[in-house]
Nucleic acid binder design. Structure first.
Lengths: 235, 235, 235, 235
DNA sequence: CATGAATGAGGGTTCATTCAT
DNA sequence: CATGAATGAACCCTCATTCAT
């Protein structure tokens, strides 16, 4: 029986691929739609239209609006966080890592305005859900924290300053565009808030930085095409 | 005709008072409902129920949902901002004013959790519509900015750090409660970010501060009673 | 203040009357629709169309399909049962009462075919829900049962024979029409099953019987007009 | 070509057997699903899941939902009716046959509760479509009817009393369980209704009766296993 | 102005059925 | 034949808004 397994494999593989393709299209569309309508809006109809699938197809993949949002927010956030991590062979501790994070996020939302709009709207939502992010904050700077240089009474609030500033920064960039050196200045100020001294903070914040490289088959990059489609269609 | 006018006056005054009373009840109810359901939730029915008026009455006061949100966000924000300003006979410039703002907001949302929930949900919305337009960094600290001490390339981003940190702080307080000295520590760090040196920042951030005094007939304080009513009814 | 109360009364009364009128129209329409589509069908759209109200109005009165069915089945059944009771000044015990029940039901569904169709479809449903009916069975014949003449081991099954036979009778009448003397013959046979001797059963079953008189403002009679409207519209 | 035909035969036979096996599994599953969800419920998905085949496979066997219901109702009913007939070498006329029918049905639904649930829900539907057309009173008791002993004006109504009572009996058994001697008492009463005198009816109704023997490979018996599977899975 | 019944657009969700593989 | 992803008609239900009283 060499053939039957093959046929089965073939079928199974084709079906799985088709399924995966549709799922991706839905996530791309969702990112676009949430970026325009906000994360509490009604979405299914428009998502399926942009994804180019039938309404019922949506429910083969996500039970609710909320589940879609949670999925797309998680996947998009992971994509960015992983890309930031990938900058370092071995994650350095302290200022350079924080700086790379802040600058990468702000650079990214300048490059992809609809992604900026998405994270602006998903902002607090992501803040709430991604406990992971908070954990990251601690993993991010264990030696630094341990060194006592931060003079910390309350490590959580460092994370609040970092995330709150990034969020407000995204908000500003989306609504008014970024002034020159905005990302670098904000990085500098936030580092100073964390206790880094001004000179060191400045040198880290203004050090050369390659643009963030998203993974091949990136959700964010694929969503660009859908976003353009939407804008073209609207005209 | 000395008398008739009086009667008319009386009637007019009584009608105006009644109108004002109903309007206030609607705003109190709205604050409560938005704090529970979010700013995009379904609202009219519950607002009128909590306010104790008929559904149709709502439309004698607000044309739409959106107008209600905008009104209540504006009035509540103004109430807080005015109360903060009232701390000072003559608005001082620079660190003490920033410090009073941050500490007052964080103290307020600890004191009134449902108000915290409201501002958490109204977050960026409020930032965009109201505060931003009223209290831009330039207006807020003209002499300080002009003094050059801030070493600023981009004054807007100071406001982003302040407002973003407050917002993230409110979020943390609402979701997990505030750790000890949370407001003071955050104030300290934000002042440092703005370029104040650590010693001065610490002395300002930890200086004694009276609790914020809301105006008589405060929307926020009146809403507390409606909130309690709601919780009692829910049991 | 003689006027304000009047106004309030007036308003309240007008609103209540309007509400009651709409509710009745929905029940009439429901009876018609269930008679055509069966009790498990989707109904809201057609009910509101026939009742001449908007879709949303339905949900101001009934939360679900099921609640509508339960209400209309209960009200229609009560109407019939009460009309049967009203035949007697003082409910007699035993055979005459059973006979009046069987004959009245069968006569009614012949007179109002769509009501027959309704009870045919609501049949077992009504059987299940109307525990009241079972209780009726016992109240119906307390002295008779007590007399021991029935030679009963298991009083419940008498009710099963009575209700099952009526239901099958309704089914036959709806699908094929009633042969001559069908109601009387069935009454005779059921009485015999209950233990009445043939001669007595025959005299009771064939005794003259006035047609059942429904109450003024009867749901069943009002539904006739809606049924005709439907048939006219369908042409 | 003596050999190839054999191979072909073999293939054909194997295919036909496989087909038949799948068809049976679908019918078993359908019986279970209809017994739980009612005859108008949503079915295809659950039927294919319980049968362990893919959704699309269903449509290789049945064109519609309705056809499935009609098929399974017919096959299950035939199975019972044939098993009842098989009690007699030569179908006797009159009371013993009626008695065997009533008692067998009621015994069967006690033995297989989900089968009871199925027939309860398929109730009038089965009555109308299947049984009624096969076993009308006239065909069932030709000599008895012809003998005039029944004193009949309207032979159809005998069938209504029999089938209505069985249906109401199934309903009672499914919902509340059967009281002692329920089937025998009901048989007695129904025979009396048909004109058999009490003594004879009693002797027939309480005569010893072997449990109904279903055919090998019985749909009903096979469905038991599927029902148990379902209940186990639900835990 | 207050009232609350009625409205209907708008969005949510299911599931029988089709069809490419 | 079996598979299961995709389909879209058909329902479901909510709730902001209108309007007669």
């Amino acid at each position: 029986m060499p053939k039957i397994p093959k046929i089965e494999d073939h079928r199974v593989r084709v079906a799985a691929e088709r399924r995966e393709r549709t799922r991706k299209r839905l996530l791309e569309a969702a990112l676009v739609v949430f970026s325009q309508h906000g994360v509490e809006g009604s979405v299914v109809d428009e998502v399926t239209t942009i994804a180019g699938v039938a309404r019922g197809t949506f429910y083969n993949y996500f039970r609710t609006n909320e589940e879609l949002l949670s999925t797309v927010a998680t996947e998009a956030t992971n994509e960015v966080v992983n890309a930031i991590e990938a900058r370092f062979d071995e994650p350095p501790d302290g200022p350079p890592r924080i700086a790379a994070g802040i600058r990468s996020w702000l650079e990214l939302v300048q490059r992809y305005p609809h992604v900026g709009a998405f994270f602006r709207r998903a902002g607090l939502y992501t803040l709430d859900l991604n406990v992971r992010s908070r954990i990251l904050a601690r993993d991010y700077m264990p030696r630094w924290v341990a060194s006592g240089k931060l003079n910390l009474k309350c490590p959580e609030l460092l994370w609040d300053i970092v995330s709150g500033s990034i969020l407000a920064g995204i908000n500003t960039i989306v609504l008014t565009g970024a002034p020159k050196d905005y990302a670098e200045e904000m990085t500098l100020r936030v580092l100073v808030a964390l206790g880094v001294d001004f000179e060191e903070a400045a040198s880290v914040a203004f050090a050369p930085l390659e643009p963030l490289v998203l993974p091949p088959d990136s959700l964010i990059e694929r969503s660009v095409a859908r976003f353009e489609t939407l804008r073209t269609a609207a005209q």
